[in-house]
Computed example of a mutant assay.
Amino acid sequence: MLPWTKLATAPIPGGDELRLMRRGDEFSIRLGANELMNSRLGGSEEALATLACKKLDGRSRPRVLIGGLGMGFTLRAALAVFGADAAIEVAELVPEVIDWGRGEMAGLFGDSLSDPRVSLVARDVGELIRDGAGRYDAILLDVDNGPEGLSRKANDRLYDVAGLAATRASLRDGGVLALWSSGPDDDFTRRLRRSGFAVNEVPVRAVGKRGGSRHWIWLAVRS
């Protein structure tokens, strides 16, 4: 088996260091001992976009915020399902991750980063949420391995009561928050409901219909 090769590193503001690894045509982004994403395992990240789109039920000119660029699975799925009239903002905290999408992983991203519907911002997604009252139809979050700050402790503010209140305020009526997780979290589900969301938890597979590890997506609609 081919060994993994480290291609690049990038510091996380207020956190640890990301490592971009490659083995043959396979890519991996890692944080410490954790693999945050792998280029062969994007089915559940794609579902983040497709399930949120279904919740919006054909809403015209949707404005979508994606938190976390990663390997672009969610972005590419959003471009496929939200239609030609969508406006999609992608907030990526680590500028080097954007560079990797245009450089080392350009073959994986294709032309998604140059799509005219896409606005790419090197910024904390929490800041966009707090500044975006009534702006978004959908907010798709995949910045940690679940509703707690793994990549950096400051991300806890996305998932606490105040953070969920800000998210709800940034959504239009009937808008949806979709959040990816490596596992369930009953406390977070209850927190969503107390914050004024109608909530569904959907188990999904890491490689879609081909199976793989089970992940979770919360679909929380502003009711």
Rank of each mutant, 00 (worst) to 15 (best):
H215M: 12
V207W: 12
V94Q: 13
A106V: 11
P147N: 03
L141M: 07
A133G: 05
R193S: 12
G83K: 11
V221W: 04
R190C: 06
W218D: 01
V221R: 15
A165K: 15
V161R: 15
T189P: 07
G132D: 03
D85H: 08
G132Q: 06
G163S: 07
D156T: 12
R193C: 08
V125C: 05
I129F: 03
A87F: 13
W218I: 04
R168Q: 05
E127D: 11
G132W: 03
S119I: 11
R130G: 01
R135N: 01
L219D: 07
S151N: 14
L158A: 04
F82C: 06
S181E: 01
D186W: 14
S170I: 06
D142P: 04
S223W: 08
A80T: 11
P116A: 06
N155A: 11
A162T: 14
L158K: 06
R210A: 14
W180H: 04
P116V: 06
G103R: 15
L141K: 03
A165M: 12
A206L: 13
D99N: 04
G175D: 02
S182G: 11
A84W: 14
A154I: 09
V90I: 04
E127G: 03
V94L: 14
L171T: 01
G134R: 13
D137N: 09
R194D: 13
L179N: 01
V90C: 07
A169T: 09
N155Y: 09
P203W: 13
R117G: 09
V118A: 06
L150H: 15
D185C: 13
D99E: 15
A91P: 00
G196V: 01
V204S: 02
V161W: 12
A78Y: 10
L171I: 00
A78C: 04
D131K: 13
V207R: 15
K153V: 13
L219N: 04
R172E: 02
S195P: 06
G107F: 05
E96T: 11
F109H: 12
D186N: 13
G110I: 09
L108F: 10
L140D: 04
L158H: 08
G211Y: 08
P147E: 04
I129K: 03
N155L: 15
D142N: 10
A84R: 15
V207D: 03
G174A: 02
R102F: 03
W216T: 11
E92M: 08
G103K: 11
V94T: 12
L108W: 12
T167S: 02
L219K: 06
L113M: 06
Y136E: 00
G212N: 04
R193A: 11
G163D: 09
D142V: 01
R210N: 06
S119W: 10
R130A: 10
V202I: 13
R172N: 03
R102T: 01
D186V: 14
A80G: 14
A86D: 03
S182P: 03
L171D: 00
A206N: 07
G103P: 05
R117F: 09
D185F: 08
R102Q: 09
A86W: 10
S112C: 08
D185W: 14
R214F: 06
